[in-house]
Design a protein around this nucleic acid. Sequence first.
DNA 1: GATGAATGAGCCTTCATTCAT
DNA 2: GATGAATGAAGGCTCATTCAT
Lengths: 202, 202, 202, 202
Amino acid sequence: MTTSRKAALPSERRAHLIQLAGDLFAEKGYRATTVREIADAAGILSGSLYHHFDSKESIGDEILSAFLDDVLTGYRAAVADTDDARAAIERIVRSSAETLHRHRAALAMLENDWSYFSGQPRFAYLRKAMKEIEKTWVQQLERGKETGQFRADLDARLTYRLLRDILWIPTFWRQGRGTGWSSGQIADGLLRLLFDGITTRP
Amino acid sequence: MTTSRKAALPSERRAHLIQLAGDLFAEKGYRATTVREIADAAGILSGSLYHHFDSKESIGDEILSAFLDDVLTGYRAAVADTDDARAAIERIVRSSAETLHRHRAALAMLENDWSYFSGQPRFAYLRKAMKEIEKTWVQQLERGKETGQFRADLDARLTYRLLRDILWIPTFWRQGRGTGWSSGQIADGLLRLLFDGITTRP
Amino acid sequence: MTTSRKAALPSERRAHLIQLAGDLFAEKGYRATTVREIADAAGILSGSLYHHFDSKESIGDEILSAFLDDVLTGYRAAVADTDDARAAIERIVRSSAETLHRHRAALAMLENDWSYFSGQPRFAYLRKAMKEIEKTWVQQLERGKETGQFRADLDARLTYRLLRDILWIPTFWRQGRGTGWSSGQIADGLLRLLFDGITTRP
Amino acid sequence: MTTSRKAALPSERRAHLIQLAGDLFAEKGYRATTVREIADAAGILSGSLYHHFDSKESIGDEILSAFLDDVLTGYRAAVADTDDARAAIERIVRSSAETLHRHRAALAMLENDWSYFSGQPRFAYLRKAMKEIEKTWVQQLERGKETGQFRADLDARLTYRLLRDILWIPTFWRQGRGTGWSSGQIADGLLRLLFDGITTRP
DNA sequence: GATGAATGAGCCTTCATTCAT
DNA sequence: GATGAATGAAGGCTCATTCAT
């Protein structure tokens, strides 16, 4: 009777279903996960999922947008009220590591199915968010170059690419879950690498 | 009795088809690419592909194994006859950067469809190759720690993960092709980051 | 965890579909019948069959195993509590004639597609059942020879072959359905032939 | 240049190909055998077969018509110049057994693919030949009844059915080749069964 | 909210056949 | 006579989605 747009009231059931779907997406990717598998995990029939969601895509949408909201919120906080670029970068890194480990599904989806999502108008916000993320990193790196904290010959955009991927990806690629490193460890490892390199200081 | 096994004699046509398929795989992933699309790209009917290949999988197989052969050959050469761990790492990085840019399709397939391939017996060699790759990196990193070239508190396996992903992935993820960096530039950027960090030396 | 295995709960629809499929199998053979034809007969799309069955094979499986269960049950009952080999053979013949006419589809499948089924692990029970069937016949024939009811020079296995084929096959080969003999008539004709031959007694 | 109809000059090559095709048909049935398999057996490519035959069907045609010619020739000879129905039946049986074992392929084709062939105009001669075969048997059986050699209550057509199937089929059904009985043994077994039954004469 | 049945489009693959070289 | 490449129709199957009950 009332209009579709089932996204409105979350309800616990709904949240649970998203959770289940997300687990599957994280494991096998979005495209590779069938609606039937999600329904199976919930103990219902696949058709019944459509009482909760318009489509499979809308599940993906929800997971993805929740993730990006979190990331952006974290990044904005990380760079607010700071003049110290090095400190900002450190906070970005730690914020990333923390946020990411709560959004394994989204990460897996971006990794595996980026080309699928990024092609659709509905997911235009993905590109937009990625741009803000890039801008955040690059601004801090540039600022650090200006203040002399970072090497003057640093290619800020290239460095951003290297660092973002290093942070975003390794948690998931290969052997599914737990190769043992916590998000904190990865952040530490990366920061150490970042600021000191791997060689011993002379 | 007769030679069958279509994989044997390459033929130009065949190589061309693999090239076309690879381009599509690189763009959209292996699973997301249909046999029809490959055939369309070649200007033939989908069934006609089976004159050249046993299956879609065997196209994937060919692309993937060619890639891993190349990588491993490069890695083996990189660590042969060297006592200097830092030099070895540098050679591994440069070898990677060079090899990888010739195998965009394989990389995209590993990224997007790893879980699909790694589950199949036919692709068991993937896991094996990845293990040798990991071993190669880790051995050099450990050796560098022993000789004092690298920090003693370096987590070799974590570092390997970070570095491999940084090297293997950024070329493809996001905005499709060329945002401008050559494989050489990426190698340089990474090595600089690796050995010096991003901060200015005090 | 959930019940899956579609074979479990029969449901009327399902049974009806098996019936329709069986009719087609009986007419044209299993391999020669397409999934599309079965669906057409049911007035649905071919893909919709997969709501009820895992695969075409599983339809075949169901038909075949139901048949063999029936046959074996009949045979076991036929030889239970009997010392009289001739009576046992008679009961086997009548049991066959009765059972078989309820399983035209299975018979046609065994006849036409034996090599296809018997090669697959899934249908290993076919060979097993055929062995028990052979053993049942041969044991009674041998026993009859010992008691002097049957000719001492009778080749039990050869006789079994001749008799089983005579019983199992003629109902279907050639001109499709009903050339008029009931299963009872065939049994009578065969038993008469069997015990008396076709010649007049001197 | 000259008109198609490749059937004209047999040539050895051609005969050899028919032989190979027949072997495969006997093993797996006509429909289940692919043109590629035939070509493989001959060590050529499937397309090359079409230099020798118009179509797969025409290979089948050749095998089938050669078989029926042989059978009918044998039957006609068996009943020529005889008043003795019992002797005629015996000669029919022996002729069958002999002929059939030279035409395993044709038999397998009739068994497995009867419905396929008998539906096509091109193979109309199949039904015609089967009718003459039936007539031959039935006539002799009826004559034996009249002369008092055979039981008066014998159903000639039913008996024909039973006997023809017993003779034609058991050689092939199941376990492919050799379960050990020669065509002579089968003929003897059948004749003994036929004239004496399986019971000991009182 | 859920079930059960179905849709329809698309997927990978097979195969008899054709034809230029 | 044969090859190598392709056709075109069909086959079994998958999957997101719809909808009456």
